[in-house]
Design a protein around this nucleic acid. Structure first.
Lengths: 224, 224
DNA sequence: CTAATATAGATAGTGCCACTCTCCAACTAG
DNA sequence: CTAGTTGGAGAGTGGCACTATCTATATTAG
C-alpha cells in the first residue's frame, strides 16, 4: 500500500506519517522508484503502536523512537530481549534530567545526584530482587524519595517495601501475559504494549480504588 | 521573606516564581506597599510542592494549578476533601483529549468516545467498588482497553481484574499513610503527595520487578 | 499521448507551552 | 543621596510536535 492508504487505515494524517518516517519511528517503505514506495501491514502495525505510545501513554517522539527501536534489534535469547525492552526507560513522562527536585533544605546541603542509590540498594536487597545496577528506574525511585523528604515527609525506603511487594505481583501478571507467543519478536512487542500502555490504566485503577476506599473509610463520618 | 529569599531557598529562579504567581500556582504574598510583598513558609512549601508536581511527576502548569487549587478549598469533611483531591485527574501525563487513540480498524468503525464505559462499569461492578460515574479515571481505563484491542490483543475488562485487586491494596496502603494527621488540610496535602508523587516511583518499581522476574524466568535458558 | 492526480522527500512555517527577559515605578539599605 | 531590589506587566525565546508548501517524478483516466 502507499502512504495515503496507510493514513486512511491508521487515522494518522499524511504529513504526520512523513514526519515519523523522517524521525525513524516507522521504517521506510520498500522503494519501487524514485518517488514511490510500498508499505505493508507491518508498517501499519508499527504506526498504530507509535501512535498509542505517543497519544495514550504520552511519550515524547524521541522516547517512542527508543522504545520501538529496541524492537528492531531482537537478536539474543528471550532474557536479553526482555532486558532490552524493560531497560528502555522513558521516565514516568517525557522528562529529562530534572535535578534532584531542586531546593536544598534550610541547612544548605549540596546537590549531588551521582551514585546515592543507597536507598534503592537497600530496598532491592531487602526484596531479594535481581536487577542490574544500571536500570534507569533506580534513579526515579531515589528521586521520589528525596523529593518526599524534601517536602517534609519523613519516609525512607522501608515505606516502599509493601508497595514493592505489590509491584512484584503486578510484574508477575505482566510476565504471565507475555508467556503466550513463542516468537521472541511477538513476546517483545507484547512486553512493550503491556509495560507502557498499561501504565496509565494502572494509575487510573489506583485512583478509582483510592476513591472507593476513601468512601468506605470516611463517608458519613462528619468532621474527623 | 521576599521573592529572592524564596528563590534562594527553593532553588527556583526568580523569574519562574513570578510566572507561577501570575498563573496562580502560588498565592500572592501579603503586600506591604505598592512594590513590596511578604512571603512566608507556607509560600515556600507550596512552591516546593508545585515544583515537584511539575518536574518530578511531569504535570503541566495548568494541571498542577488544578491540583494545588483543590488544596485551597478545604471546607467539608474528610470524605469530601479526599474526593476533591482524588477527583482531580491530570491524566497519566499532561495529555488533553487524545481521541480514542485514533485509527478505526479495517472495517471502518466510527469513533464515539461518549458513554461507552460498559467495560469499566462491569469491572467496577465485579470489584464491588464504590466510585462515582464521573471519575475521570474511568475513561483512561476505557481508552487503554480500546487501544490494546485496536492493536490486535484480545483483552477485555476481565484481564484487568487481577491488576485492579492489586490497585485496591495499593490504595489501602495510600489511605493508611494519610491516617496520621488529624488536620484535614494536612491530610489533603499528604493525599496529593502520595497520589501524584508516588506515581513515577510505583511505575519504576514495576519496571524493576519486571526485570527481576524476567531474570528469574528466562536467564540462562537459551532460545525459547 | 496528454492531463489530472498522487507521491517521496526536503524545507520552512505554525501553534503551544514553559519559562525568561526587559522595563519601569516604587521602595529600602547603607 | 545613591545603588541595588522589588513587584508587576508585557514581550521574547527555545523546544517540540506537527503541518504546509514545494519540486521532481509516477501513475492513471481519457
Amino acid at each position: 500500500m502507499r502512504i495515503s492508504e496507510l493514513s486512511r487505515r491508521s487515522g494518522v494524517p499524511n504529513a504526520t506519517i512523513k514526519f515519523y518516517l523522517r524521525e525513524g519511528l516507522v521504517p521506510p517503505g520498500r522503494a519501487t522508484s524514485a518517488t514511490q514506495a510500498e508499505y505493508d501491514e507491518g508498517h501499519l502495525r508499527r504506526l498504530r503502536l507509535v501512535r498509542a505510545l505517543i497519544s495514550v501513554r504520552g511519550l515524547s517522539v524521541s522516547a517512542a523512537k527508543e522504545v520501538v527501536g529496541s524492537l528492531g534489534e531482537v537478536e539474543g535469547d528471550t532474557y536479553e530481549l526482555l532486558g532490552l525492552v524493560f531497560g528502555v526507560w522513558p521516565g514516568a513522562d517525557g522528562n529529562g534530567p530534572a535535578g534532584s527536585g531542586g531546593g536544598e533544605g534550610r541547612g544548605g546541603g549540596e546537590d549531588h545526584d551521582e551514585g546515592e542509590d543507597a536507598d534503592v540498594d537497600a530496598l532491592v536487597a531487602e526484596l531479594g530482587w535481581d536487577v542490574t545496577e544500571f536500570s534507569p528506574a533506580r534513579k526515579t525511585v531515589t528521586q521520589t524519595l528525596n523529593t518526599l523528604r524534601n517536602l517534609g515527609l519523613d519516609c525512607g525506603w522501608r515505606d516502599l517495601v509493601p508497595y514493592a511487594r505489590l509491584a512484584e505481583r503486578t510484574a508477575t501478571l505482566d510476565l504471565d501475559q507475555i508467556e503466550g507467543p513463542d516468537d521472541p519478536l511477538e513476546k517483545a512487542e507484547r512486553a512493550v504494549l503491556l509495560t507502557f500502555l498499561l501504565e496509565p490504566a494502572l494509575l487510573a485503577l489506583r485512583r478509582l480504588a483510592q476513591e472507593s476506599e476513601a468512601a468506605a473509610r470516611y463517608r458519613d463520618q462528619g468532621l474527623p
